[in-house]
Write a protein that binds this DNA or RNA. Structure first.
Lengths: 240, 240
DNA sequence: TGGGTACGTAAGTGATCACAATTGTTCTCC
DNA sequence: GGAGAACAATTGTGATCACTTACGTACCCA
């Protein structure tokens, strides 16, 4: 049981090996490619990325500091474990931070930017109808990001992404066990409020979107998901 | 103009060079030892810490990912610049996150833990009366941290510390130009609310504490502080 | 048969070196 | 005297190696 396999990721020129490794791992974790407990080794990843240990170590250290990975006392690096109460904390943080970020972005978003957000929402619907869960997930994150990044000083964005990263693993498990994604019409509500520049309504719509989306899992459901994940760890997503 | 000088820091046994470098730099930045724009070089820090570049690079990378430092396009690493609007964003995030974290910790704090928090508040007052601004600052952070860490799943704590780190540089400047610290009786209010297990009152007291503390600087005051810092950069805190 | 020890393997850590890119300096020419 | 080019110094990047620690397995003895 060495290192998990990585989804492909394009590497543009001029990017350092370190940045590439970091981004690739970050994306993979954020979309739930690795269940909680997945171990990461420096040498294994260096082999997988066809580089040496130095940039990989730096990437793992960075991911650890933003909460995406956890450094055990053994110095082993793993995907953090999830508990129902930690899940609930993370969801409450998502609602808190993203309602706030959305509210503070409203005044800065131009009509053209809102049009782009609408386009992303359309892409989400297309992905859902096509049954492409991974694509829907990425587009959904892009929808939220585009709103919050309207703020010229998006200092909250790294914090929000840290929470996303911590929810990634459980998200991946949920995606594997949810038969059908449903269309979230809270996005329409948020868009309407954005066009009206109604800060309270935008914040409320984003909060409701999270609550009714991933936040809709109650403690029992999370417990079930974690049990399912427990069965699968070691047989899925792990090479050799 | 090479690297900034570092305050001393105890290194306990069993700690890796990397962790030591990271913690030492982190502490220094959090208490405002470096004004915005201060450059950091790997070799300079490695010399200062009497180690090699590998652990220092990892520490700098970690600090960059949590917002404490900024990586320029030149690949130079500096303390991020501050603007009045970014400052305002950071303060609003502090209020948001810390009110929330305080509220969610209330139910978990034992009477003994509250006693420890009171003791820290006393230490703050002692430090203020003694005119020891740095010590007062550190004790104040400890006061807040002790409250929020009452939560058994303190997932918000790293996010809060990220905001503290980003406010550190301006905090350091403010400390140099504030003649006298005043005693914040909002802490007493928070303690009283803690003892009564009144979540709303605790959240309100913490929010008010931040608003009336560092959050009390308005945009004009921040502009003045930044101008003062501009004069001093290059002559203060920089060696050779 | 059970537990403890010893050994081999795997993995993290940190120092060093070669290379590339950037920056700073100086020298020359107009 | 000033602008530009060539050169030198500094710095970041990544690969490699030696060292130490943690883990797993097998062996030995009670």
């Amino acid at each position: 049981m060495k290192t998990p396999k990585l989804p492909a990721f394009p590497r543009s020129a001029g990017v350092t090996t370190h940045d590439y490794a970091f981004e690739r791992l970050r994306q993979a974790i954020m979309v739930g490619a690795f269940p909680p407990g997945t171990p990461f080794t420096i040498r294994g990843l260096a082999d997988a990325l066809e580089s040496s240990s130095t940039p990989v170590r730096e990437a793992l250290r960075r991911l650890t500091s933003i909460g995406a990975l956890q450094s055990l006392e053994n110095r082993r690096i793993v995907v953090p474990n999830m508990t129902p109460s930690r899940f609930e904390e993370l969801i409450s943080l998502r609602i808190l931070l993203e309602s706030h970020a959305a509210r503070r972005a409203v005044a800065h978003l131009s009509d053209r930017q809102i049009d782009a957000i609408v386009a992303i929402d359309d892409a989400i619907e297309v992905a859902i109808l096509a049954g492409d869960k991974a694509e829907a997930l990425i587009a959904n994150q892009e929808f939220h990001r585009k709103i919050y990044m309207g703020n010229p000083d998006p200092v909250a964005m790294p914090l929000i992404e840290s929470v996303w990263l911590q929810l990634g693993p459980i998200l991946g498990i949920a995606m594997d066990h949810v038969t059908q994604l449903y269309v979230i019409d809270r996005h329409r509500e948020a868009i309407k409020a954005l066009r009206q520049r109604d800060e309270d309504a935008v914040a409320e719509a984003i909060g409701a979107d999270i609550r009714e989306g991933i936040g809709g899992f109650d403690k029992q459901a999370i417990g079930k998901l974690l049990a399912l994940a427990g069965e699968e760890v070691g047989t899925l997503g792990i090479t050799s």
